[in-house]
Design a protein around this nucleic acid. Structure first.
Length: 546
RNA sequence: UGGGGAGUCGCCAAGCGGUAAGGCAGCGGCCUUUGGAGCCGCCAUUCGGAGGUUCGAAUCCUCCCUCCCCAGCCA
């Protein structure tokens, strides 16, 4: 018997990790997920989370959660809390390894002095505008700052006084002394520290100078003994600076940066700036609006952690730009919910059906094994399940036609009642008592099985139906993405009719409403008033033949 | 047109010189008390293009084309 190797996820990063471990370059892999606490996590972050925590798990290593809190003007504790909640909800644990770049401010500062002492950094007193003007362009070298030749002593003195708060914002910066003529703009004496008289969520007023990402990140990695520092493609150009810093300062370990392509999804936006705008300008109802691609939004929509993890796995990790079809993430929830969600019946757009030969006042309770469903003389079916003049391919109810009511009886439509305007207001039907449970002793097989609900037993629920937030595949493409907002992305059914078994369902309970889709109890529910979010519809081949 | 990346099926993605995995979507069929699910089958003679090396190239070499990223005291 041959034993198949389990097909674990394969990608170029895991190959590198495996090779590094095999070669003995590192004894144990340590990765990190380094969000800046300035927004909510979205599904693109989920890819990075799955990668970093996934690798740590597979190779018996560790993954740190590190907040990149180097810019106090943009960061808030609300965001840190949401990030922790979302990572945990996705099913990953950082154990005791929760860190902050701000934990390292002392060490980072000390290395700033070390750089000065080695002649590798200097205090520049140019204005931001002057620096920009002297940076050169993509095709022209920059010019060296007049302050570049300051003495070590002067630099040290100035840097200490920057730290001491002697200067206003923008008066000086600490810059690396690398090469103003480098074709890589990141190497043209990048700024390492800036003055910001701003209170920091964690360090309070202890600091008025804050390190930049390019400086803090590699050194924080080194402090944490990160082995593989995984980031997105746009940081490829920063890797030489990452390495320069690691090599220029007395760090305790040698991390290496690798870049992969970020996740893009069609029919939505993923940039923090745009998501923030949607929230702030109230185009959606908060970061956890079920239409948002945020983890919080997906959770409220009814997505499961497993479905998001599977999605990330299917999407893969590579270096080429990609736009994933939103249909894939929908496939992943259906795949999960299909096997886990209890089935229940509910009618969104009710049409009364009176079973004329069913005894008045009688109620039967059908036991499906998971719940009991009441059947009575007056039923509600989905309006679109009836057609007075059905086209060829329409299998559902029509005058004179017999269909099965799921788990109940076969019924035959015997009459149509209309109002003065000609709208169908009620149907009449007869049932066949011999088909109790949904099977006919004579082997009759109706072409369709409909969902239904007993009118007198139904519980009224609000149901929120969602559609894609934007009309076009790439909302960023043409001008203002807000112009592309789908005006029908939220449709509310105020009084959908649900079978009574849903009564008392707790928030985040997930169901399949048979033939309609998967639905999840929204936290807006209170007591008797249940609100459902439609997570995703079922695949609908009828919609296609239509 | 400086530097850094990337181009394999509609969307992802394997492939690492030995003759194009897989998933999603799509299309047929079977089955079905959800037009759901499940099952079966089909779906790249061709890898951005052109040359070259080789018995053999998506994989190596050369030239070309296209796309993405970089000129924040953001990350």
């Amino acid at each position: 018997m041959t034993t198949e190797a389990p097909s674990k996820p394969r990608d170029f990063i895991r190959e590198i990790v495996e090779a590094d471990l095999a070669a003995g370059r590192y004894q144990r892999v340590i990765t990190r997920f380094p969000p800046e606490p300035n927004g909510y996590l979205h599904i693109g972050h989920a890819k990075s989370i799955c990668l970093n925590f996934g690798i740590a798990g597979e190779f018996g290593g560790q993954c740190n959660l590190r907040f990149d809190d180097t810019n106090p003007t943009k960061e808030e504790v609300e965001f840190s809390e949401s990030i922790k909640r979302d990572v945990a909800w996705l099913g990953f644990s950082w154990d005791d390894n929760l860190f902050h770049a701000s934990d390292y401010f002392d060490q980072l500062y000390a290395w700033g002095e070390e750089l000065i002492l080695k002649g590798k950094a200097y205090v520049d007193s140019s204005s931001a505008d002057e620096m920009r003007a002297m940076r050169g362009t993509l095709i022209e070298a920059g010019q060296e700052s007049a302050y570049r030749t300051r003495s070590v002593d002067e630099n040290l003195d100035l840097f200490r006084r920057m730290k001491a708060g002697e200067f206003p914002d923008g008066a000086h910066v600490l810059r690396a002394k690398i090469d103003m003529a480098s074709p890589n703009i990141n190497m043209r004496d990048p700024v390492l520290y800036r003055i910001r008289h701003e209170r920091h969520d964690r360090t309070g007023d202890a600091w008025c100078i804050y390190p930049l990402y390019d400086y803090a990140h590699p050194l924080s990695d080194a402090i944490e003994h990160i082995t593989h520092s995984l980031c997105t493609l746009e940081f490829e150009d920063h890797r030489p600076l990452y390495d320069w810093l690691i090599e220029s300062v007395s760090v305790p370990s040698r991390p290496r940066q690798y870049e992969f392509a970020r996740l893009n999804l069609n029919y939505t936006v993923m940039s923090k700036r745009k998501l923030l705008r949607l929230v702030e300008e109230k185009h959606v109802n908060g970061w956890d609006d079920p239409r948002m691609p945020t983890i919080a939004g997906l959770r409220r929509r009814g997505y499961t952690p497993a479905s998001i993890r599977n999605f990330c796995e299917r999407v893969g990790v590579a270096k080429r730009e990609n736009v994933i079809d939103a249909g894939l993430v929908e496939f992943c929830v259906r795949e999960d919910l299909n096997t886990t969600a209890p089935r229940v019946m509910g009618v969104l757009d009710p049409l009364r059906v009176v079973i004329d030969n069913y005894p008045e006042g009688e109620t039967e309770w059908f036991d499906t094994g998971t719940r009991k469903v009441p059947f009575a003389r007056t039923l509600l079916i989905e309006r679109e399940d009836f057609m007075e003049e059905p086209p060829n391919k329409f299998f559902r109810l029509a005058p004179g036609r017999e269909v099965r009511l799921r788990s109940a009886y076969f019924i035959t439509c015997t009459g149509v009642v209309k109002d003065d305007a000609g709208n169908i207001v009620e149907l009449h039907a007869t049932y066949d008592p011999a088909t109790r449970g949904g099977d006919s002793p004579d082997g009759r097989k109706p072409k369709a099985t409909l969902h239904w609900v007993s009118a007198d037993h139904a519980v009224d629920c609000e149901v929120r139906l969602y559609d894609r937030l934007f009309r076009s595949e790439n909302p960023e493409e043409s001008g203002n993405f807000l112009d592309d907002l789908n005006p029908n992305s939220l449709q509310v059914v105020p009084r959908a009719k649900l079978e009574p078994s849903v009564r008392g369902a707790a928030p985040f309970t997930r169901y399949q409403f048979e033939r309609l889709g998967y639905f999840c109890v929204d936290p807006d529910s209170s007591g008797e008033a249940i609100v459902f979010n439609r997570t995703v519809t079922l695949k609908d081949t009828w919609a296609k033949v239509k």
